[in-house]
Design a binder for these strands. Structure first.
Lengths: 218, 218
DNA sequence: ATATATTTTTAGTCAAGTCTAAAAATTAAT
DNA sequence: ATTAATTTTTAGACTTGACTAAAAATATAT
């Protein structure tokens, strides 16, 4: 059995491994968890003892298969709870994260299986992130950052990279929600800002926004 | 803010105070929480600092109004989650306790308000125990132990005293569930066992059972 | 290739919550 | 009203997870 702290470390390493080929540095983990590298070293030794990570001094950390499974399961729980909060309890997508951070540590296989079923076996959370299955596998769909699309290309909005409540509330204000179709009307070379069409409305958005919105090309 | 451990102490004291007029002894708390009296002394000092209990050495502990409110809120969460598990996730009433013990510590006012609403503002949990309102008040209904009824009296089954899964499963097996009408057909002086009528079926039950079943007299 | 800068680890400390064993207070018994 | 039994508290130690400051290893720059 793993403690709340251990689960958070595994989850952090799991997320960091998604976009990093080498071993994860203790510093990177420390930053992600808002703690100190020395604390990470201690914990990583413990996790290594428990055979959920492989750790060589000064060489960074990688998850073992077991570690990956455990981390994916925490992520699965987190995302299922997010769906629950939005679909059943009328939370908005920018309110769910902190509560899901707590709920993801509840231990009960039956609970999560039944929740999954109750929600109709959702495949993605409210931010468009895929929900791992019971074995920890997640099918990733081909999605592109809006910023990478060319003029006149279009697609469906399927996810966000940054899921801070500030960004999500900004999207709400602009009427940009998952599932909507977006077409690039124009790209401005000067500042890489975009002119887009979304549901018959024309909108100008900055490059920063375009770099945090995922599109499934049509 | 209170830690998980602090909340569990407050809840234990809260439950113990329900059927005890004097201050609660550290020993009683220790037994309830399956810990040692010395640990309780330490914690009770801390809770006293935080003004949620009143503690005089060797004299036992009582909750302050603040302490009562906090404890009642934990109990409220516990019981709402139990309702959720049974009504929405198809748990049986003997499976919910351990999971609710975890869920009761999730911190989010919105979560619990929305859950309450989602469940239709239930007044009692699956074991017939009342759910405190947002202010910690609970309305107790007049209920009697089945063992206290006399021959030919009858009433509705409204709760259990012992909610161990063993006892609950026993009741399931016998077809005794909340809401059913029970009539005392006969009482046996020798062993205080009862002959009862429940939904046209005649049943013999021991005194031990009768002392753990609550009835609302008809 | 050596010096400098950065990253990572070690060593020692701390707080929360628990424990055991011993001491002190309270309660019960003669 | 002492003595004996029980309960409660204190004192000191342990574990988990974190921290700071110093040492060691690695990476960078001239």
């Amino acid at each position: 059995m793993f403690t709340l702290s251990e689960e958070n470390y595994l989850k952090a390493i799991y997320h960091l491994e998604l976009d990093a080929s080498k071993g994860i540095s203790t510093n990177a983990i420390a930053e992600k968890l808002d703690t100190k590298a020395s604390s990470v070293t201690d914990m990583v030794k413990k996790l290594s003892e428990k055979e959920v990570v492989i750790y060589k001094k000064y060489k960074g950390v990688t998850l073992t298969e077991l570690g990956k499974t455990i981390a994916a399961n925490v992520v699965r729980k987190h995302r299922l709870w997010e769906v629950f909060l939005v679909q059943k309890l009328n939370f908005s997508w920018d309110e769910v994260h902190d509560v899901a951070e707590q709920l993801e540590h509840i231990k009960s296989a039956k609970l999560i299986d039944q929740l999954d079923s109750f929600l109709g076996f959702p495949t993605h959370d409210p931010h468009g992130d895929p929900i791992p299955d019971r074995d920890g596998n997640l099918k990733t769909i081909e999605k592109s950052l809006l910023a990478t699309l060319s003029k006149n290309e279009s697609g469906i909005c399927v996810g966000v990279d940054d899921s801070s409540s500030e960004f999500l509330q900004f999207l709400d204000k602009k009427g940009i929600t998952l599932g909507k179709k977006i077409t690039i009307l124009d790209k401005e070379d000067f500042d890489d800002s975009l002119s887009i069409l979304i549901e018959d409305r024309k909108l100008n958005i900055s490059n920063k926004i375009a770099n945090n919105l995922y599109i499934k090309k049509a």
